[in-house]
Simulated scan of single mutants.
Amino acid sequence: MIDVVLKKGKEKAVLHRHPWVFSGAIEPVKGKPANGEIIRLLNAKKEFLAYGFYNDQSRVAVRLLEWDENTPVDDNWFRDKVRTAVAGRAHILADGRTDTCRLIFSESDYLPGLIVDKYAGHLAVQVLTSGMQAAMPVIIDELNTLLKSESIFDKSDATSRAHEGLETTNVLLAGNQPPELVMVKENGIAYGINIAEGQKSGFYCDQRENRLTLANYARGKKVLDCFSYTGGFTLNSLQNGAVQVTSVDSSALALETLQENIRLNGFEDTKHDAIKSDVNVQLRKFRDEGEKFDIIVLDPPKYAPSRSALDRASRAYKDLNRLGMQLLNSGGLLATFSCSGAMDMETFKQVLAWAALDAGKQVQFVHQFHQPEDHPVRASFPEGEYLKGLLCRVW
């Protein structure tokens, strides 16, 4: 096993169990470890610190796995981590009202670069690091042993794979090709999930608890669900008695699936409109038409993929939320989210304060939204906390 040596004074984060070591923190490597190979990380005194995946193409040159020198990172190590992660989600699926959740969440489950989502009897995986790519045969075998899934589908199409020297993939890894729409349940609501062609791994199960929370306010209300995708907030609002819901998304495929989900749940007789449009364009159109709503959901894609993009992203979040605030009836509710890890909650609150000032509105923060427990945040890896949101009362 090849040794990688840290520069003097660069071991603090490693000792605190942070799993990333950046390329600038290491000495020139003696030998040539393959990308994805497991190496020994040493301090400047050549003392053992941890085992980790190495990749000389990535800014994160080493992704740490194990800090006990006497615990080898072998097939049994990976199997144990998979078993632990899967067992920790069993209670989420126990009551039968939900059969979809995230089973493995990358660094937060001690498997950097691996995401596994369960959709009823099917699994969708995303492999984002070269080290995890090399470990996939044993991981797939363990997942099959534990879950006896009908299929395991590889949705590793994230652009971040390019930083690891990996090509994107979208292929069946095990079992039978999943149907065009996999039927799942979340909070007792039925969804059709397009694993092969849907965004990310096919569905956003990180909003499960937040959809349920917001739905408690929906009875008798007129709701606007922006960036609706396949209708998570839409369906929960209809289920809980919203008098009208309008869903806006730029994806025709997502809206087709949403309409199928409306039918699946018997909501054909409810007042629902689906609009294919850029959300910012549509919000301005609603404003110009004098349209008003009681509840507005703003759940945009990641505006700040890195800290360097935060200023630009903050302006985009401010403009989006300003438009939303202008469309609310007095005392209405704005449920607004950011899935940008670089955007912390305090900055997000400040952005909303600026948006309120520009919109000429008063805003109260009445609830904070978070990612659910199947997306845990590891104490030594705060970067795992990416989803945050606020429920705002707007006057």
Results as ranks from 00 to 15, higher is better:
D99M: 01
D99H: 01
T100Y: 01
T100N: 09
R102A: 04
L103E: 00
I104G: 05
I104Y: 13
I104W: 08
F105T: 04
F105C: 10
S106I: 03
S106K: 01
S106D: 01
E107L: 05
S108C: 14
S108W: 08
S108M: 03
D109V: 03
Y110L: 11
Y110W: 13
Y110T: 06
Y110I: 08
Y110P: 00
L111A: 05
L111S: 04
P112F: 04
P112I: 05
P112R: 06
P112K: 06
P112E: 08
G113Y: 02
G113N: 06
L114R: 06
L114D: 06
I115L: 09
I115M: 04
V116W: 00
V116L: 03
D117Y: 05
D117Q: 05
D117M: 01
D117C: 04
D117K: 01
K118T: 05
K118Y: 05
Y119F: 15
Y119P: 02
Y119I: 02
A120G: 02
A120N: 11
A120T: 00
G121A: 15
G121R: 11
H122I: 12
H122K: 14
H122P: 12
L123C: 12
L123F: 13
V125P: 00
V125D: 00
V127D: 04
V127K: 07
T129V: 06
T129G: 06
S130L: 14
Q133K: 15
A134S: 10
A135P: 01
A135M: 13
M136E: 10
M136H: 09
M136P: 11
P137W: 06
P137C: 07
P137Y: 07
V138Q: 10
V138R: 11
I139T: 01
I139D: 02
I140L: 15
I140R: 08
D141T: 10
D141G: 04
D141Q: 07
D141N: 07
E142G: 09
E142W: 06
E142P: 05
L143S: 09
L143A: 08
N144R: 13
N144I: 05
L146R: 14
L147S: 03
L147G: 01
K148E: 07
S149R: 02
S149I: 09
E150G: 01
S151R: 02
I152L: 12
I152P: 05
F153Q: 03
D154H: 00
K155H: 08
K155A: 10
K155R: 15
K155G: 00
S156L: 04
S156Y: 10
D157Q: 14
D157E: 15
D157T: 14
A158C: 11
A158D: 12
T159C: 02
T159M: 10
T159F: 08
S160D: 09
S160Q: 13
R161M: 09
R161S: 04
A162R: 11
H163R: 15
H163Q: 12
H163A: 15
E164G: 12
E164K: 13
E164V: 12
G165L: 05
G165C: 08
G165S: 04
L166S: 03
E167D: 09
E167W: 03
E167L: 05
E167R: 11
T168H: 12
T168P: 13
T169L: 15
T169I: 10
N170K: 13
V171L: 14
L172F: 13
L173K: 13
A174W: 07
A174K: 07
A174C: 08
A174E: 03
A174P: 00
G175Q: 00
